[in-house]
Amino acid sequence: MKSDALVLPRMQVASGGNASPLRHRVRWGERLIQGFLFLCGAVSILTTVGIVAVLGRESLLFFASPEVHLSEFFGTTTWQPAIERFGIWPLVTATLITSSIAMLVALPLGLAVAIYLSEYASDKARAILKPVMEILAGVPTVVYGYFALTFMTPLLRSIFGRDVVEIYNTASAGIVIGILIIPLVSSMAEDALRAVPDSLRQAAYGLGATKLETAVRVVLPAALSGVTAAFIVAISRAVGETMVVAIAAGAGPKFTFNPFEAAETMTGHIVRISGGDLSYDSIDYNSIFAIGLLLFVMTLTLNVISQRIVRRFREVYE
């Protein structure tokens, strides 16, 4: 290999005659860096492959065991692996409730922040506001979890009454997840809005549009693909959020649509179950991989949809 590489350029130089010697010289430093960068890229791909393989193998073990039937998994509403009840719905509904509440909070607020930052804010205001938003994104989620439990839950209880709102409930977890992903929504949406060329704004003003009309009727539709992508990434983030729900949402699977009751999400269940000392090869242990696989499929689907939307609705301005 090494000798080949060394011989090749000399031969080419000899035959090519007037070809630039620089073009054909092997630059080892360059190659080294290229190889290193390729390796870095490969690591993330291999990690993904590894995760999918492990998830797949362990969940296969779960679904292959005689106690588990797919019809039971998707068709019943009690999840209690210790006594062989495998209906996934209580975990899924809790996940959907927390994520929907989170989106109800994060989408309007995040979008409003994005519109303000890109259309209204002066450079000075933006220079202060954006870093502050990013700080919000840097707060560890465990802090948000206790924020939900020790601030949001008492607040909800004082509004709706102690007997209506349970101490652990999906509403407070959902609201706090919403706050947690506002920076994500606003910064991605703002990038999309800012990417809209100024000529469109100028044209709208030229036609007599107000600032609000320009922002909402011209800039926002033009940036629709980017904004939608931001929303969908935010949904995946909300579905996958773990620490907040583990602390504040509840610690027992419960099939309910009432956001003021305690219920356990998929991620919260995985954390709680793997926190104890489960023996490997037990059905409880394998069941958490099945939940993990379902979560992975859910977020993957969302990401694929987001890419489709970006491609479908992208408006290209020259």
Binding site: Q80, I83, R162, D163, E166, G252, G275
Partner: peptide, 24 residues
């Protein structure tokens, strides 16, 4: 384990907070 409205936790503080936090 099949009882409704059951919160299970290995962390006893979670249980303490739960019981303390609701009359029922």
């Amino acid at each position: 384990l099949s009882a409704a409205n059951t919160q299970l936790s290995e962390d006893d503080n979670v249980l303490v907070q739960g019981v303390e936090g609701s009359k029922y």
